[in-house]
Amino acid sequence: MNGGLLLGASVLGLLLGGIYGLMASGLALTFGVMRVINVGHSALVIAGAYMSYELFAHLHIDPFVSLVITMPVMFLIGMGLEMAFLQHLREDREQFSVLVTWAIALGVEGVLGYFCGTDLVQISTNYANSSFSIGGVQIVYIYLYGFLLGALLMGLLALLLRRTTFGWSLRATVLNRQAAQLIGIDVAKVSAIAFGIAAAMAAAGGALYGMLNTFNPGSWYDLIGDLLIIIVLGGFSSVRGAFIASLVVIMFQEILSVIISPTWADWSFFMLLAIVLIVRPSGFFGVKTREA
């Protein structure tokens, strides 16, 4: 086994894990707050990727800079989707939300296909292939920037959740929706904002996804499986858990890809999922909820 290859794959896995953590965080947030399994979250990631792509291709705005436009826009879109389609779900939210968000994802795919076409595209900045070497390992700038952006946004989200009144309301809603309502929290408003935040995080994740991969409106199918597994391992509703799980999962996969084979990495990954669910069904950082 080549030590340099192992080290290179580990570094790559760590950096990529941070980016996947950013994409998965919104999914964990919506499940925690709203009891909504948003299988359309990856379609919002792809919508974010397209926004960044269009701003880069037509107005030459760097994808990191255009986040100041795409994140607020996606925040509003997210709130709108929540109020239009999800707020009305009263019973069996987890089950019905799968159907509703699947429909939302198909709608997003259709709209993107209509306006942007189905050709594969990629956000190709002039620094896309730049790298530097540390100890014989090539560190690619985009992966590093993506990891740092992910860590920054996750940090800001943690501050929002822990240090603000809104954050307390949101965490109370995570613990028990009905009790939160009883103590005067406007759960509907909190849910809409939480979905908006998740969509904004998806926009940031989408910009990074679009710089690292070719994509088209159908790319969300490939992505949603990975994101769901990450939040299951992370504990469903834990944003911190989603971030750490993504680091573990992606690093695990990248290392196994080089030391055994990519096919085995995929298989082992599901074995890891099964083991964690048997040993600790609530995931790494599962939050114990209280039902009224």
């Binding site: 290859l5 790559l12 990529l16 594969l120 070719t214 992606i250 990519p262 096919t263």
Partner: peptide, 30 residues
């Protein structure tokens, strides 16, 4: 490798580190 991977980079890294003189890739555009 499976078609749907989070990243193809580790495999590409393996190819690069092999320093092979000719590379044959069974790929599609992505």
């Amino acid at each position: 490798y499976p078609i749907e991977l989070p990243s193809y980079a580790p495999i590409a890294l393996g190819v690069a580190q092999s320093k092979a003189q000719v590379v044959v890739l069974g790929t599609n555009l992505p």
